[in-house]
Nucleic acid binder design. Structure first.
Length: 583
RNA sequence: GCGGCCGUGGUGUAGCCUGGUAGCACAUCGGCCUUCCAAGCCGGGGGUCCCGGGUUCAAAUCCCGGCGGCCGCACCA
């Protein structure tokens, strides 16, 4: 049994996660997060919010998971999802038609139809590169889930493959409602959907999964990152383009300063978020040496990015697995939506000193037109209004006339004003760097890294602030007096806001073991001495060390431990007497 | 999608080859005992043997199809 199997076994048995729809045979790529798993995920989300949103005063939104066709048409997803596949009739292997043909030196336009691709394959006698077999008919495949919105089948919608488009589409609203704050970070935590062809790898590759995404909008003319100073000397593990091209398999560790100076990372804020991501994953219990950032090469990158690093963690069965992606999306998305929607999604840049801008205004002179063209003025004016102002200007200046309503209208019929204007703001399209995290993979990785076996017992050494219960409370034995006190402690800790696991059945050792297995960091045990001096013992999940503590100090003790201070350290600071059981 | 292996209480499995009452361990529940690490004893519950079809007097077992899982190939914008 490998580690992944053990972790999944534990996850199913104790209720962290399991495959969905099992009673009907199951559906590949879909999992249920159980009661303990949901708590874990929520705690991971809480940490992410604190680190990526709250500490920068960024803004979080929730936008719909379903979007009309046009959104993903604009974003380029429709185009880059609609790949043409061909499969070999002999061995059944599937290939993307475009990459197959490009390898043969044949150019295919992206807009080529299925029939065109089929005939190109036939004419060039392209065979299966693996077995030499003949290809069957080509077909489209898309990894976006398609649906209809409302009862009309022509109203096509997609389930979003990323939450990011919500931030782009709604950018202007958020920007305006927060008084044009800039630079601005907008985040979203939510479900995304990708109809994977053949998902495997358990909870690592899902068809439906939670993402935590942040879009950081900045001015391309002032791309200095305001947070950079603090992280310049921090190290990153980078398997960057140059290293990959040299055939390097291992990452190289360098400081942010070096990475930026050597242009390994081309954007300051991207580097900053990569540092945050490293700290975040480290706080989740995955040491730095098992993390790295692998650069995506040209061709591997998503259509919208000019530079991308995947943050990967090393997993036992699957090796390096992506847990977050860091992409420089430039102004790709906002520009695309401006073009598609015709709406203004610009931000405004305050200029240091007023700038003089040459303005050219062209206005038709109706009286003059009526004098010379009479009733035709109606058609002329109507057609003129249809022409874009910029186009009108350039045509008029180039040709000296413009043809409307069958009339060559010379520039005498226009009032052409040229003047210089002072401006203090100017519009621009923000650029974006995006850190985007896959929550389900992260939660799985956390479990795998927390998983330990000690003398045939399973211990889940989760960081205390991630554990599904903060503390467990036990009477040493099922004795009425001990039970009463234990219940009392349980209730008061619950009232203090802790998640308490209360267990009275079977031997104390077995109860410790059950709690260790799901990662409860602290055990509080009421024993016979409690009756004498109102003290209880606290036990550390990882070391099994115990200390004696006054009942009314337990809450503070728990608070410090789940903040991340070490168990022994807190006990020492509080001057607790260590407890050793007889025997 | 292709190839290989596989699917039996919650978990891990035996039984399948050679068709004939589905067994074991752990977990779980109740009781007894018990002053600190899955202790012991007694008792209980829990199985559409992945689904469908076929062969047969009889199918967990043999045959066919499907679904699901793992590994490899392909795919993962």
């Amino acid at each position: 049994m490998d580690k992944a199997e053990k972790v999944m076994n534990l996850a199913v048995r104790r209720g962290f996660f399991w495959p969905a729809y099992e009673i009907y045979g199951g559906v590949a790529g879909m999992y249920v997060w159980g009661p303990l798993g949901v708590v874990l995920k929520n705690k991971i989300i809480g940490l992410w919010r604190a680190m990526f949103i709250e500490s920068h005063d960024f803004l979080e939104i929730e936008s719909p998971a379903i979007a009309p066709y046009v959104v993903f048409e604009a974003s380029g997803h429709v185009g880059s999802f609609k790949d043409i596949m061909v499969s070999c009739r002999d061995c059944g292997r599937k290939f993307r038609a475009d990459t197959l043909l490009v390898e043969k030196g044949i150019e295919v336009s992206e807009a080529a139809s299925l029939e065109e691709v089929d005939s190109i394959i036939r004419e060039n006698k392209v065979r299966c590169p693996v077995c030499g077999g003949v290809f069957g008919k080509s077909s489209y495949f898309t990894t976006m889930f398609k649906t209809t919105i409302g009862p009309y089948s022509e109203s096509v919608g997609f389930l979003r493959p990323e939450t990011a488009q919500g931030m782009f589409v709604e950018f202007k609203r958020i920007y305006e409602s927060f008084r044009r704050r800039f630079p601005i970070g907008i985040a979203q935590i939510g479900r995304g959907f990708r109809n994977e062809i053949s998902p495997r790898q358990g909870p690592i590759r899902l068809r439906e999964f939670d993402m935590m995404e942040l879009e950081y909008f900045f001015d391309p003319e002032n791309s200095d990152c305001p947070y950079l100073e603090e992280v310049l000397d921090e190290e990153l593990n980078l398997l960057h383009e140059e290293l990959i091209r040299k055939g390097g398999k291992d990452y190289e560790t360098m400081t942010v300063r070096e990475a930026l100076e050597n242009k390994v990372i081309k954007n300051g804020c991207m580097a900053y978020f990569m540092v945050l991501a490293t700290r975040f994953i480290e706080l989740l219990g995955i040491p730095r040496e098992n993390q790295r950032f692998k650069e995506k090469l040209e061709g591997e990158r998503a259509h919208y990015a000019i530079q991308t690093f995947d943050q990967e963690v090393k997993l036992d069965r699957w090796g390096w697995v992506e847990v977050s992606g860091h992409a420089n999306r430039t102004d790709y998305d906002l520009s695309s939506h401006i073009k598609m929607s015709g709406r203004d999604l610009y931000a405004y840049r305050q200029l240091d000193k007023p700038r003089e801008v040459e303005v050219l205004e062209v206005t038709p002179l109706p009286k003059k037109i009526r004098r010379d063209y009479g009733d035709k003025i109606r058609d002329i004016m109507r057609d003129l209004s249809k022409i874009e102002a910029e186009e009108l200007k350039s045509l008029l200046l180039k040709n000296g006339f413009i043809e409307v309503a069958g009339v060559k209208l010379s520039k005498e019929y226009f009032d052409i004003k040229k003047y210089v204007k002072q401006v203090t703001v100017e519009p621009f399209i923000p650029h974006v760097v995006e850190p985007s995290f896959g929550l389900d993979r992260i939660a799985y990785a956390v479990l795998e890294y927390a998983y330990r076996e000690v003398n045939d017992r399973v211990v889940l050494s989760l960081p205390p602030y991630l554990a599904p219960y903060d503390v467990s409370v036990y009477p040493l034995v099922e004795d009425d007096k001990l039970l009463e006190i234990a219940e009392d402690i349980r209730d008061s800790l619950a009232a203090d806001g802790y998640r308490v696991l209360y267990d009275t059945k079977e031997s104390i050792g077995r109860r410790y073991a059950r709690a260790d297995e799901i990662g409860v960091p602290i055990a509080v045990t009421v024993d016979h001495r409690t009756l004498e001096d109102d003290s209880v013992t606290v036990r550390d999940r990882d070391t099994w060390r115990q200390y004696r503590i006054k009942r009314d100090e337990v809450s503070r003790f728990i608070d410090l431990v789940i903040q991340g201070y070490g168990f022994d350290e807190v006990a020492g600071d509080m001057g607790l007497e260590s407890f050793v059981s007889k025997e």
